[in-house]
Write a protein that binds this DNA or RNA. Structure first.
Lengths: 340, 340
DNA sequence: ATGAAAGCGCTAACAC
DNA sequence: GTGTTAGCGCTTTCAT
């Protein structure tokens, strides 16, 4: 069990040819049809020796030579969050399928961490980036983008033209609200984040439009809380809603819904009798306890696959013509009660 | 914004010294105290120029030269699974803290995928591996280990001496069962996997011992189902339990508990009146719906930190004396009702 | 205190 | 058809 990996040289020596020739044969994957400039016999011998010695090229050397790393960086909010970890998983699979490695970084919605990770990835050498922007990250995204490295935005857009893959958040917000209205709820309050993020704002816009279109309640009844709001904050928000005779909630994210519902049930309220609920993304809990609620399902697999596809086009293909593809995917509104 | 990164040469030219000197200064991080062999003035100029030109060393070149990649590979069951994604997150943070990159790979408990990922990581060049073994992975772990690359086992052990970080699964299984017995349940059935994994087997052993120690029920009342069991399978398992007058379940994993509870509630049974429940790991759902159950909390942060620490020792330090540290962490049994 | 030179492993251009 | 050469960016003797 030698500690040392075999190199082109070893093979060259073994077969009795030059290292260059070995490299040539290894690179231009011997298409048995197209008879390259290599004597088939020699090629055979080289390939055999390579397999025998368990050769695999040294990635560092190759990267150094070619400037190509076969590595992509993925920056997201928090890989331990269910939505993002599912995305991570699909990206991982797609990447390996196309011979790429993936580096992940979690920002916790902190632009400092964001720029730090971005810098680290840039230094390490990545061929492209898939990025979930956070508040205050626009500048460094734009900056890195101008260095020539392709960046694909995921989940959220920024104030500059980058390729992106997002949910149709406005539509989702609209549909969720409309469905609550259909069910007879009138005073519907949205619970959202105070962060200035495109997806959040779009979801709010969808909610407002639906309320206006249906002439119901206050179309601007939105409570915005901090990303790190304490359980107490949420508790009092629920209490306040009860006092205000709120009939249903639209939660702008799954995390918010979890916090909100935790509070709601803790206080002994019932769903959907005391409060109707609409939110984003599925949660294990919805399976376990068949609660009657609505959620907007995001096509996670498509989101991840699309972003990888755009990325590969940007890196491999020289298709920088329509360099700024904006993919917007449709949500699916799930009524957990419909299936029960 | 030039496309090209600045190199040692650029700095050398800028300052008017040799590339070698630049390299030297950059490597031996200028400890202002220990007056190295460099004229402080020159060092200053080099450092300044480096900052001005936004220099950062080319990782490929460095890796090529040194054989050190500053990259670790982490192979786990499925990064989209909550338990593993939390671990991934902590490892990510720890790794960046120590200037390492992390490559993740998900096996889906498939030894083919496992060996494939392992090979890819080996070829790519990783300095060490953190690995969650799966059924049938022992051989390739041992093989890779013999190539000289440090491997730390996580969550499960294998039939060969490798450093490892695991939960005290026997203890956890014992404690959960004992607590159920304390609560008065007698006929307690364990629901487990049919996979031959050390952690699963240990949890079962803990359960059996507790049953024996307390002379209650059948100490071997274990149902083992497939990792991919369909909801129908689970449904009928619950029905069967009801017929058998089972009073409580110990689920060997969180995923099993989710499936089981989904089935239990779907059928209209109640917890803890119809069935007592004990399981492993926390779940969002336990927060949302304050159900009265027991779970064994794994110290995720410690698990991840310990494995990174062992890894760093194995890579950086030459401490191969007690090369096979086996860390076993204690579970904490949570009674969700105690807090409510 | 600094520079010159060699070489990590691979590949592309250019001989032969 | 095949071999030679040079160089990617960095580090590390060894000389000066």
């Amino acid at each position: 069990m030698g500690r040392k990996k075999t190199t082109v040289k070893d093979i060259a020596k073994e077969v009795g040819v030059s290292p260059a020739l070995v490299s040539f044969v290894m690179c231009n994957t011997y298409n048995s049809n197209s008879h390259y400039r290599i004597k088939p016999e020699t090629a055979r011998m080289i390939l055999d020796a390579a397999k025998r010695l368990n050769y695999s090229p040294n990635t560092s050397a190759r990267a150094l030579k070619s400037g190509k790393y076969n590595t992509i960086g993925v920056i997201l909010s928090d890989i331990s969050n269910a939505f993002f970890s599912e995305i991570a998983r699909v990206i991982e699979d797609e990447a390996y399928k196309h011979n790429y490695f993936v580096l992940f970084g979690s920002t916790d919605e902190d632009s400092c961490k964001f720029s730090q990770i971005l810098k680290v990835f840039e230094n390490k050498g990545v061929d492209a980036l898939i990025v979930v922007p956070c508040v205050g990250s626009d500048e460094c995204i734009i900056n890195t983008g101008s260095h020539g490295i392709p960046i694909i935005l995921l989940d959220r857009k920024i104030s500059a033209p980058f390729p992106s893959v997002t949910l149709d958040n406005t539509q989702a917000g609209y549909d969720l609200t409309a469905r609550l209205l259909d069910k007879g709820y009138r005073k519907i309050r949205m619970v959202s984040y105070d962060m200035e993020l495109s997806n959040i704002r779009d979801r709010e816009a969808g909610y407002s439009k639906a309320m206006r279109d249906h002439g119901a309640g206050d179309s601007d009844d939105i409570r915005r809380i901090s990303h790190n709001a304490s359980p107490d904050t949420v508790d009092s928000m629920i209490e306040e809603a009860r006092k205000d005779a709120v009939e249903a909630f639209v939660f702008a994210t799954n995390t918010l819904a979890v916090k909100g519902m935790t509070s709601i049930f803790k206080k002994g309220y019932h769903v959907p009798s005391d409060f109707g609920i609409a939110c984003f993304d599925k949660n294990d809990a919805f399976d376990i306890y068949p609660t009657d609620l609505l959620y907007a399902r995001q096509p996670v697999v498509e989101i991840a696959k699309h972003s990888m596809q755009i990325l590969l086009e940007a890196v491999d293909g020289a298709t920088d013509n329509d360099a700024c593809r904006q993919i917007v995917l449709s949500p699916e509104i799930i009524d957990t009660n419909a299936g029960a």
